[in-house]
Simulated scan of single mutants.
Amino acid sequence: MAFSLFSSKNRIVNIVLNDHSIRYLELKHANPPTAQKWGERFLPPGIICDGKIADMDSLVNILDECIDEWKIQRRQIRFVVPDQLVIIRKVSVPAEIQEDEMKGYLYLELGSSIHLPFEEPIFDYYLLSQNEKTKDLLLFAAPEQYVMEYANLFSSKKLTPVAADISPLALYRLYQQLGFGKENEILFMIQFDLTSVNLCVFEGTVPVVMRPFALLFNLENWEIQRYSIGTMDIKYTGEADELVIQFEDIINEINKLMDFYRYSLNKEKNGISKFLLTGDHPMLRAVFDEMKERFEVHVEQLSVVTGSNGKSGSIPASLLLTLGLALKGVK
């Protein structure tokens, strides 16, 4: 799954951009998942907005500095398509459509029987089930224009994109590699970041519904500090009540998606087995504690211990998505 726009090769740097940061990671080995090098850089508001590049000149300058600092010149890269650009949708096609015909058929049906909120998509699909009459597919789509803006940006800096992925799949890959995934599990993944939240429900290994939404972010309420080892420290300095309101909104969204999944998608067959909380928000531990109080469903956080090049202990939570991306294609 994910987007097959590029071919896959070796010795790849993994890069994740979102509205507030750019991060990279190189994998040392996959079992257990171990990072060899990593780094992150804060992006001021207005450079990337809702996953779309809004200030290309500033982003180019920052990327130039990151490439020099991280010493990743002329490398092959993987990157994550921002959550706000991605649509996951279940579609049915006639059973007689063969695998080698499927992409062509889907392309012809986009805009007629298959409706997306944008034109000219880049897409991939996953076969869910089939019978004598139909095949049920999970369609992953994003606007080609915005995905190619990222690809062209990297190419202009002599970085060669070889794979594009989506964040829930990258995180689930890490979750599974750590031995947590269960065959019949209904996993509710919550990516709680500084400027956005992404909710995704997995049936087994397959993400069946995803809902991203933005968080209000006022830079004046946050203190950003960069450390010499290449990581960031972000502290909230604003009014506590503002965060409480934000957290309540997120809890409401979680409840809405749980109800939608149970009553609309799952027909009340099964409920959520487990919550997986991850992300780069500085208050993630408080969210974890609050969720344990609010929900009867088990809540789990990802944590990976690594050590190399003078770095030891747990890899920062902000880098776990990048680590999951690095596992793409690893058997």
Rank of each mutant, 00 (worst) to 15 (best):
F3T: 03
S4M: 06
S7V: 02
S8G: 02
R11T: 11
R11Y: 13
N14H: 14
L17I: 13
N18P: 03
D19L: 05
H20W: 07
Y24M: 13
K28V: 00
P33H: 08
T34W: 14
K37T: 07
G39L: 10
E40G: 04
I48D: 00
D50F: 12
A54Q: 15
M56S: 12
S58G: 02
I62H: 08
I62K: 05
E69S: 05
Q73W: 15
Q73A: 11
R74W: 05
R74H: 15
R75N: 12
R78I: 01
V91Q: 04
V93P: 11
P94N: 05
A95F: 12
D100K: 15
E101W: 04
E101V: 00
K103S: 06
G104W: 04
L106S: 01
L108H: 14
L108R: 15
E109R: 10
S112T: 12
P117L: 01
F118H: 11
E119T: 15
E120T: 06
I122Y: 06
F123G: 03
Y125T: 04
Q130W: 07
T134W: 03
A141E: 10
A141G: 06
P143K: 12
E144P: 02
Q145A: 05
M148G: 03
E149D: 14
Y150E: 01
A151S: 09
N152M: 09
N152W: 10
L153N: 10
L153F: 08
F154K: 05
F154P: 05
L159Q: 06
A164N: 00
I166W: 03
L169G: 00
F180I: 01
E183I: 07
L187S: 05
I190M: 03
Q191M: 04
D193W: 06
T195Y: 08
F202A: 00
V206M: 11
V206A: 00
V206Q: 10
V208R: 15
V209Q: 08
V209F: 14
F213N: 14
A214Y: 07
N218P: 02
E223Y: 12
I224D: 06
Q225N: 10
I229N: 15
I229P: 03
I229L: 11
G230E: 10
M232L: 15
Y236H: 14
Y236S: 12
A240K: 13
E242F: 11
L243T: 07
V244S: 01
V244D: 06
V244R: 12
I245Q: 14
I251Y: 15
E253S: 11
N255Q: 14
N255P: 03
F260P: 08
R262I: 08
Y263S: 04
N266Y: 09
K269E: 12
H281M: 12
M283P: 04
L284I: 13
R285G: 01
V297N: 11
V299G: 04
V304D: 02
T306S: 11
T306P: 04
S308W: 10
K311Q: 05
K311C: 00
K311G: 03
G313E: 08
G313V: 02
S314E: 14
I315V: 13
P316N: 07
T322S: 13
G324A: 00
L325T: 09
L327W: 06
K328R: 15
G329H: 09
K331W: 02
